[in-house]
C-alpha cells in the first residue's frame, strides 16, 4: 500500500501542474495595476509624534540594535528640559529589508511602518533618509501612547506628577 501511495504521490502532482499551466495567473502586472497594500504592510518607515505634538523618538538605540542589516544610526542628545531626543537619525533604505523588527523593538511607538513601497531610485543618497525626512506630523497608527507620561521620570510633568505615581518622598523626615 505504501508503494502505491508513493507512486500516486509522485505522479499525481504532474497532473496538478499540467492543469495549472492553463489557468489564469493570479499575479497582476505592477505599474499598470497597483494593489492597495494591507494596513499592516511593512513599507517605508516614519518617525511619529506623540499626542502632545512632540517627537516620540527618545533615541534609545533599540531599533538600531534590532535591525538585522544595521541600517539605522543616530545620536542621542538631551534637551534643556531633560527630554532625550535624537540629534540626528538616519535610515539607509537602500539597505533596509523592511522586516519591521525595528518597529517591534521601538518602546515609544515612534518608529512605524507605512504602506509606501515605491522607493526604487538610481540615486542611492535619495534613499538615505535623515530625521527631517522621516519625521511626520502625526501619531501614525497609535494616537494615544505618550512615553514620557508613563515613564516614571519627570520630563513632561513634575516628578511624581504623572498618573500612577505618588508625590516625591521627603527624605528629611522619618515620619511614616
Amino acid at each position: 500500500m505504501g508503494l502505491w501511495k508513493d507512486i500516486k504521490g509522485t505522479f499525481l502532482p504532474f497532473w496538478v501542474t499540467l492543469r495549472y499551466l492553463f489557468r489564469r495567473p493570479v499575479t497582476v502586472c505592477y505599474p499598470e495595476r497597483k494593489q492597495p497594500p494591507a494596513p499592516r504592510y511593512r513599507g517605508r518607515l516614519v518617525l511619529t509624534r506623540d499626542p502632545d505634538g512632540e517627537e516620540r523618538c527618545v533615541a534609545c538605540y533599540l531599533c538600531s540594535a534590532a535591525c538585522p542589516v544595521d541600517c539605522i544610526s543616530m545620536q542621542a542628545a538631551e534637551r534643556e528640559d531633560g527630554r532625550r531626543y535624537a540629534a540626528w537619525f538616519r535610515i539607509n533604505f537602500s539597505r533596509c529589508i523592511f522586516c519591521g523588527l525595528c518597529t517591534e523593538a521601538c518602546p515609544t511607538l515612534a518608529l512605524q511602518t507605512t504602506a509606501e513601497y515605491e522607493l526604487a531610485t538610481r540615486e542611492l543618497l535619495q534613499v538615505v533618509c535623515e530625521k527631517d525626512e522621516l519625521l511626520i506630523d502625526g501619531c501614525g497608527k497609535n494616537t494615544e501612547y505618550n512615553f514620557y507620561r508613563l515613564a516614571g521620570i519627570g520630563v513632561v510633568a513634575p516628578r511624581g506628577g504623572n498618573p500612577g505615581e505618588t508625590p516625591p518622598e521627603d527624605i528629611r523626615t522619618n515620619m511614616p
Binding site: V58, R84, G152
Partner: peptide
C-alpha cells in the same frame, strides 16, 4: 516601584 524608563536610561 521601578519606573518604566529603560529607553532613556544610560544603564540600558
Amino acid at each position: 516601584n521601578h519606573p518604566h524608563d529603560c529607553p532613556v536610561c544610560d544603564e540600558g
